[in-house]
């Protein structure tokens, strides 16, 4: 029995959608892990937020200054700012302009 083009197409799509995405995620996360290990061999700390995520964290802290988790959030924010401004190797893509704009809270 010869398979129709539709069946073959769906088989290819399914393999790509499941195994393609899984292998992409596995490769990406293991490569990121290697980069993190490299950075931590070079310095003892590493940036913990991307520029976009750190901006969102700052916005949340400013919008919720009295939240029970505000102190924890502030500590995490300041930790990331310190690492980004005091170290030369970063995990996320920080431009000089991004770094110059950073301020502790």
């Amino acid at each position: 029995m010869a398979l129709s083009a539709e069946v073959l197409g769906m088989l290819a799509f399914t393999l790509l959608a499941f195994w393609g995405v899984s292998l992409w995620a596995l490769t990406r996360t293991l490569r990121q892990e290697s980069r993190k290990v490299d950075i931590l061999e070079h310095q003892d700390r590493m940036d913990t937020y991307s520029p976009e995520a750190l901006a969102e964290l700052r916005e949340w802290i400013e919008d919720h200054p009295n939240d029970p988790l505000a102190d924890r959030a502030r500590a995490q924010y300041n930790e990331c700012v310190d690492v980004v401004t005091q170290t030369d190797r970063h995990f996320y893509d920080w431009s000089d302009a991004d770094i110059n704009r950073l301020e502790r809270l």
Partner: peptide, 16 residues
């Protein structure tokens, strides 16, 4: 969810 997202999910995250 917003607290968890900004505090933990996006911290050290491989995707935003």
């Amino acid at each position: 969810p917003e607290r968890l997202r900004v505090l933990t999910v996006n911290r050290n995250a491989g995707i935003h």
